[in-house]
């Protein structure tokens, strides 16, 4: 589903690479946790996957799409196949819950009828039924992140990238979000999650990839990451 082959990314103003010959393969339907300290290269990896940045060298293939042969005009199409969730939610502040989720379908050219039948189902999935007409500022942090997740999954992407989705949430809401991501993964979506939260990493018992100074220093299979606070 996701293949990185000796990917290096060096920013023009930096002497050392943000990612250094990183090779990685993630199977379809996997739930992978990416950990690492600030500056380890997690954000750069996400930017490469969403094609916000181009690698300096190496090969990236996501969902069968080879980024080397991807034209700039096809980047929006690629992004519609990947769901993204951010730490700061990135919702449209002037739009309601329904409109924020519908936006992802509208840009893909779906009809009003399709949107009206799809969005309520996703709202129900994330547990926000009854809050369709609320604006983001009327919601709690956890609820906003649910809206962001709903928007990310409403097009039923094969891959969901969640960049520190619990970073701004309290423990209870953090676990709600993690359970939601697990549910989405159960339905067949590959989930790539970054987090600083050791408790979440350890309790989830999923594959854990550790990045440090742009290099993969650990890639542990499901359930093997058990030591507490080991980040």
């Amino acid at each position: 589903m996701i293949l990185l082959d000796r990917v290096t990314k060096t920013y023009s103003k930096s002497s050392s690479p943000a990612l250094d010959r990183v090779s990685l393969f993630i199977e379809p339907r996997e739930f992978v946790i990416l950990v690492g300290t600030s500056g380890a290269g997690k954000s750069t990896l996400f930017k490469l996957l969403t094609r916000e940045e181009k690698p300096t060298s190496g090969k990236i293939v996501v969902g069968g799409i080879d980024y080397d042969s991807l034209k700039d005009s096809n980047i929006p199409m690629l992004r519609r196949k990947i769901g993204v969730v951010f730490q700061d939610f990135k919702l449209l502040p002037q739009r309601t819950v329904f409109e924020n989720i519908a936006f992802a379908l509208e840009i893909a050219g779906m009809t009003r009828r399709e949107i009206k039948s799809t969005v309520p189902k996703v709202i129900e999935l994330v547990g926000l039924t009854g809050k369709e007409k609320h604006f983001p500022h009327q919601l709690a942090g956890g609820e906003r992140q649910r809206v962001a997740i709903a928007r990310a999954v409403v097009r039923q992407p094969k891959i969901l990238i969640a960049d520190e989705p619990t970073g701004n949430l309290d423990p209870r809401h953090s676990w709600d979000i993690i359970r939601l991501l697990e549910k989405i993964n159960k339905y067949g979506t590959t989930v790539l999650l970054t987090t600083h939260n050791a408790e979440i990493v350890n309790k989830l018992k999923r594959r854990v990839i550790t990045l440090d100074h742009g290099k993969i220093t650990g890639d542990q299979a499901v359930g093997s990451y058990r030591q507490g606070g080991g980040l």
């Binding site: 916000e52 929006p76 992004r79 519609r80 993204v84 990135k90 936006f103 992802a104 928007r151």
Partner: peptide, 16 residues
């Protein structure tokens, strides 16, 4: 600008 950034990342094309 953040709205624009978000729109880009969820796949809106430039004209949209």
């Amino acid at each position: 600008r953040e709205e624009i950034q978000m729109m880009k990342l969820i796949g809106a094309d430039q004209s949209f």
